[in-house]
Amino acid sequence: MALQGEIFIRAISRTLCWSASFYPQPILNYRRRSTQGLAIDFPTTNTLGFLAYMIYTATFLYSPLIRSQYAARHPISPEPSVRFNDLAFAVHAVILSTLVLSQFWPAVWGFKVSRFQRISRPVAGIFWGCILTVLGLAVFVAARGTGASLRAGDWAWIDVIYALSYVKLVITIIKYIPQAWVNYKRKSTIGWSISAILLDFSGGVLSILQLVIDSALQDDWSGITGNPIKLLLGNVSIFFDLVFMLQHYVLYREKKSVVEGAGNDGGAGEGVLAPLLGGGSSRSIPRVELP
Rank of each mutant, 00 (worst) to 15 (best):
F8L: 15
S77N: 15
W128M: 14
A143I: 10
S193K: 04
I7F: 13
G267L: 10
V167H: 10
S284M: 09
R121L: 12
I131R: 05
E79Q: 10
Q25A: 08
L48D: 05
W105G: 00
P43G: 13
L87R: 05
I7N: 06
V123E: 00
R287M: 11
L61H: 08
L48H: 07
I173V: 15
V100D: 02
L217Q: 12
L150F: 03
E6H: 05
T44L: 13
I131M: 13
P228I: 04
S165A: 13
V113Q: 11
A93H: 02
I238Q: 03
F42T: 05
F42Y: 12
Y176C: 01
S63L: 02
V141D: 01
R253P: 02
A90N: 10
L231W: 04
S114Y: 12
L65G: 00
A52K: 01
V250I: 15
L61R: 06
G147F: 10
V167I: 13
Q218Y: 05
Q218N: 12
L290V: 10
L150H: 04
Q25L: 10
Y53Q: 01
A71Q: 00
A71Y: 02
V243T: 06
I213N: 09
F8D: 12
L242C: 10
I9E: 02
F201E: 03
P106L: 07
L217I: 07
C17V: 05
L135Y: 07
L38H: 11
I7L: 11
S97A: 13
K112P: 05
E6Y: 09
D200A: 01
S188Q: 03
V82Q: 02
Y184I: 06
T45G: 12
A124F: 12
Y162A: 07
L211D: 09
L242H: 02
G267F: 01
I95N: 06
V288E: 05
A163C: 08
L65M: 08
Y249L: 08
E270R: 00
F104Y: 15
L273C: 14
L246S: 11
A216D: 12
F111V: 14
N29Q: 11
F8W: 12
R32I: 07
L246V: 13
I177R: 05
I12M: 15
S202E: 08
A274T: 13
S207F: 14
Y53A: 01
Y53V: 00
I55R: 00
Y30E: 00
Q25G: 06
Y56E: 01
Q4D: 15
S195R: 06
V212H: 03
I76V: 12
L101K: 09
S63V: 04
F84V: 09
V91W: 04
W128K: 11
L135N: 07
I190G: 06
